[in-house]
Nucleic acid binder design. Structure first.
Lengths: 220, 220
DNA sequence: GCAAATTAATGATTTATTCAAG
DNA sequence: CTTGAATAAATCATTAATTTGC
C-alpha cells in the first residue's frame, strides 16, 4: 500500500530521435486552429478527489519497514522496496487467470486481484496492471517468433471476456470467460501519488501545500 | 464528491489481431465494431485507502445540476459529462507551463496543477497528465511535419527538468527549469476505480456491489 | 437563421518500446 | 537474461467547429 518508491534516473528525456522515417500512417489533417474561442465551457464531470497522500516520511533510503503485512513466506527481499517482486503464489494465480482468458482486467478486477494477491505478499494494483500488460505482450512476441516456423498462428482461442470471481468458500479466485455481450465498458481513474524523493528535497519538510493561485473563488 | 462517471462502450476488446501485416501499420479498421458487454464484477478492496467511492446513486442520466459553479456564460451543455472539457483559463495555464518547459510533470506537480486548475472548472489529475502527454506528442508531430521543409529541427532547447513551485506570497505558479541533476525520479501510483454503468445497469438500481471476495479482513 | 451532417481537435486508451533492477 | 516499470506512438471516441440544406 501506500508508499511505493520507484526511482529511476531519467535518461535524457526521451527526446527520441528526430527520425524522419515516419511513414505511412495516416496523417491526420490537423489543421491549425486557433480555438481561442471565447470562454468555453466547461466542466464536466467528475472530480474526484485525489487524496493527496504523500507520505512525507519514509526516507528515500532503506526503510523497508513500511509494510505491515509482510508475512509472506517468500524469501524475497525488496528491502528498499523498489519494485514488485512477485511470490510464487502470486505468479501462479496470475498465470491461471491469464490462461483462463483474462487479458486486460478492468479496474474492478484489478482491485480484486490485488486484494487476493495481497495475501501472499506485497502488491499494488499497478503491479497487476503491468503484469497483464507485459505478459500479454511477451506471449505475443513469443508466439510471433514461433510462428515463423509454423504455418499460421493459432490465435488465442478466445476473444471473449473474462470475469473473475471466487468461490464463496474456498477463497479461490475463479476466472470465467464469458461470451461477448453487447456492451463492454471500462473505465479507470487514477490518483496520482508520489513520494518524492529527490536527493535534495528529502531533507526538506514535507511538501508545501500552499495555494498556488490567487484563488479565484469563482472559477469559470 | 467524487462521483465520476465515465462511461464508454468499449469496442471489441482490443484483441488486436494476429494480423500478418505486421510490417506496416495497421490500418484503421474503420469498420464499425460492435461492442460487447460484460458483466463484471466487483467489489472493492483496494489496497490502499482508496475510498471506495462508488456512489451508487447518480443516475447516468442528466443530472447536470451537480456543479455549483455552473454560472458560466457558456452555453454549454456537458450534460452527461463524459470527458474533460477544459476552460480557456485552464488551457492557458497549461500552455504557459508547457512553454515554460514542463513536459512530464510528476505526481506532485500534477496534484498541484490540478488543484489550481480546479478553480477554473472541473478537472482531475489524469486530465492534466493526459494533457501533457497529448500536447507533447502533438507538438512533436507538428514539428516533425514542419521539419520536412526545414533544414534541421531546432530541437527543443532544454532537456532539463522542470519543477513548478509557487511563490510564497503571490500564489502564483512558477515553472522553473532546472538543470539536470544526477537523479531524476518519478513515480506515480494509481488507484483503480470503476463505476460501472452499463446500458442496462443504468436503469437498474445502482450497481451491484456484491462482494466477490470473502473479505479477508486482513487484506494487505 | 436553425439544426442535421461533416470535419477538425483533442481527450482517453491501448499497444509497442525502452530501460533497468535482480 | 528475465521481467517489472515507464514512456512514447498509435488509436479510438467524443466533443466543438464548420458546413450545408431547408
Amino acid at each position: 500500500m501506500g508508499s511505493m518508491k520507484v526511482h529511476q534516473l531519467a535518461r535524457g528525456f526521451w527526446e527520441h530521435e528526430p527520425s524522419l522515417s515516419l511513414g505511412c500512417k495516416r496523417l491526420r489533417p490537423l489543421a491549425p486552429k486557433l480555438p481561442n474561442a471565447d470562454t468555453h465551457s466547461h466542466s464536466t464531470v467528475s472530480a474526484f478527489d485525489l487524496k493527496s497522500f504523500i507520505r512525507p516520511e519514509s526516507g528515500p533510503r532503506k526503510l523497508g519497514s513500511s509494510d505491515e503485512k509482510r508475512n509472506s513466506p517468500q524469501v524475497e527481499t525488496h528491502p528498499g522496496g523498489t519494485r514488485w517482486n512477485p511470490t510464487q503464489e502470486q505468479i501462479g494465480i496470475l498465470e491461471m487467470l491469464y490462461r483462463g482468458g483474462m487479458r486486460t482486467p478492468n479496474a474492478q478486477q484489478i482491485e480484486q486481484i490485488t486484494a487476493q494477491l495481497g495475501k501472499y505478499g506485497k502488491i499494488e494494483g499497478k503491479n497487476v496492471f503491468y503484469w497483464f500488460q507485459n505478459h500479454k505482450a511477451r506471449e505475443r512476441q513469443k508466439q510471433k517468433r514461433n510462428s515463423l516456423g509454423l504455418s499460421h498462428c493459432p490465435r488465442t482461442p478466445a476473444a471473449s471476456f473474462t470475469t473473475i470471481s471466487l468461490d464463496s468458500r474456498g477463497n479461490q479466485l475463479v476466472a470465467e470467460r464469458g461470451e461477448d455481450s453487447p456492451y463492454k465498458r471500462k473505465c479507470r481513474s487514477w490518483t496520482f501519488e508520489c513520494l518524492e524523493e529527490d536527493s535534495r528535497s528529502c531533507k526538506e519538510e514535507g511538501d508545501r501545500t500552499l495555494e498556488l493561485f490567487p484563488l479565484h473563488p469563482e472559477g469559470r
